[in-house]
Design a protein around this nucleic acid. Structure first.
Lengths: 150, 150
DNA sequence: TCTTTATTGATAATGATTTCGCATTTGCGT
DNA sequence: ACGCAAATGCGAAATCATTATCAATAAAGA
């Protein structure tokens, strides 16, 4: 059966406790604080397991590779900082104003991504600070759990 | 200086005349109707040039590779069919209801992607029809040019 | 504690997309 | 018509995220 390993627990906690979607690399870096020798392959293997178990969901952003977050979150969208590249959750939804599609098209799901500057990076230059920092701290929402459906 | 070649013209026309964003492979397939020996490398090289020239823009969808479309289009968003995987333009915008971001965050741009079933695929099974068809015909908007700002 | 086997770590392998290298072709100004 | 640099074709090479290998490790029940 499914065993409880230190690495799996670390990975799960890292995701569950994060206030924003994390990329595999970020998860690796953060979880290594708890399990130093943790391998990226293990992160991927567990992401797959946790996903099958329905504990986490995949967050896909335009032109970027997958990130993961807890499924125990209200319906929300994402904000990616154009400087630090980190992704934050934005609570709420713009509404069902999505009926403007042409005749014959049926919408089942939607994805909204906002781009700009995050709290941490402040309203300075348009861009600049290269690459991600893998750690990160800033928060964007109050982590209100449960109660889906938008 | 910049020369006018048959392949460049074919590529430009293909994109300009398409009613939806096209992936490099799709552009290759469509433009080969005009220039049979066209190479994929040439498509990529010209996409870069046309983009620098400000003629086309990149369309990025969550978890998918880049597509390209003319910049001469009103502000709009995209709809991807979950069956044929083709991407259509959806005119208009849900509005500036994007002020719901947390304090300290500044939104500069947004991206909205709708998922569902397109006109051509009809409201049948949830999914199924594998892979793209590279050609495609269906239309989703009236191609009204110019007049940005949303 | 012993046994079984899920799990891990390290690394090679994939698969897909995009870029390069280079010899050949071809616009385009003269 | 000439000449040269831009542009092309095609295959190799580079990226990159994700997956597969496989020997070694360590949960969990007996």
């Amino acid at each position: 059966m499914e065993r409880s390993t230190r690495q799996r627990t670390a990975i799960r906690n890292t995701i569950e406790q994060s206030e924003r979607p994390l990329a595999p690399q970020e998860i690796l870096a953060l979880a290594q604080a708890e399990v130093p020798q943790l391998s990226l392959a293990t992160v991927y293997r567990n992401l797959a397991l946790l996903q099958e178990a329905g504990e986490i969901s995949t967050v896909l952003l335009p032109g970027d590779s997958a990130r993961y977050e807890s499924v125990h979150l209200d319906h929300h969208h994402h904000f990616q900082c154009q400087k630090c590249e980190r992704v934050f959750d934005i609570p709420g939804c713009v509404g069902d104003l999505l009926n403007s599609v042409p005749r014959g098209f049926v919408v089942e799901r939607h994805e909204i991504t906002l781009y700009g500057t995050c709290k941490g990076c402040g309203p300075t230059a348009k861009a600049g600070g290269k690459k991600r920092d893998v750690s990160g701290a800033a928060t964007a929402h109050s982590h209100s759990h449960k109660s889906h459906g938008h």
